[in-house]
Computed example of a mutant assay.
Amino acid sequence: MSSTDEQVAAVLHRHGQTFAEQAGITLANKPSPLYRLLVLSLLLSARISADIAVAAARELSASGYRTPQAMLDASWQDRVDALGRGHYRRYDERTATMLGDGAQLLVDRYGGDLRRLHDGADGVPGLERKLQEFPGIGPTGAAIFCREVQGVWPDVAPYVDKRALQGAEKAGLPTSADELAALVSTADLPRLMAACVRAARA
């Protein structure tokens, strides 16, 4: 095993849980887990700790809001209360509104299925633009979604954003997308990207 391989193994061992996994999402190319990842990406975009964002995502799922229609069927106050139970209190009211508006947009434009958004996107830049049409999803949220989804949407890979590259450099790993992608399988790229992001924050 080369020194780089050893470094990758160490980084994955220490930090290699994806944010989706931490939030209890078994990511697959299906409407519900993809929607839950979109919600998680929105929550992680705010200036709030990642652990609180993940806890709020888990609470929204536990409350049954695993599809855009279920999110719409919940009242605004139901969403505020679920966010509060996840300790996501600083932005709870604004976020509850954005969750409702985003769910409505997803139902109206894509029939509630993010795979339709993916199919209609013109490459990764198009995917990023379409994701940013959702309330609360800016460049950061789009990057989070793309980093995590590339394991189930292989055409997105290798997706390596600025934050992941910062972490890769800090961890002593290569700092180009192609070199990083060559270190692991496409299925493991989300784990490596999450590890790099956590290394950047450490």
Rank of each mutant, 00 (worst) to 15 (best):
R36P: 02
Q17S: 08
L192S: 07
G172K: 11
A181T: 04
S49E: 06
S61L: 00
Y159M: 14
P154W: 15
G151Q: 04
P139D: 07
L183P: 01
L183V: 13
A57D: 09
D119N: 08
A28S: 14
E21N: 05
M193Y: 05
Q69G: 09
G112H: 10
R191N: 07
F19L: 04
L114Y: 13
R47W: 10
V80C: 14
R58H: 10
A82T: 12
R14N: 08
V149G: 04
A200R: 01
R109S: 14
G112Q: 07
Y88G: 03
L83I: 14
T140I: 10
R14A: 07
R129Y: 12
E6H: 10
L12R: 11
G138N: 13
P154R: 15
G112I: 11
L165W: 03
A55R: 00
A20Q: 06
P33I: 07
A46N: 09
G64T: 05
S61P: 04
F134R: 01
D81I: 14
V107M: 15
Y88W: 10
L114K: 14
N29Y: 04
W153S: 02
L105V: 15
C196T: 04
A70H: 08
R94W: 13
A70W: 09
F145V: 00
R66Y: 05
R191K: 15
G24D: 07
R116V: 14
V184M: 12
T18S: 10
N29E: 09
V197S: 01
Q22N: 07
Q132W: 03
R66M: 09
A96I: 12
E6F: 07
P158N: 10
T97P: 02
L117M: 14
G111C: 11
G24P: 08
Y35Q: 02
T4M: 09
L44I: 12
G138C: 12
A121K: 03
V184I: 10
A177G: 02
A143F: 00
P174S: 06
Q166N: 05
K170L: 13
A121Q: 02
M98S: 12
P174V: 09
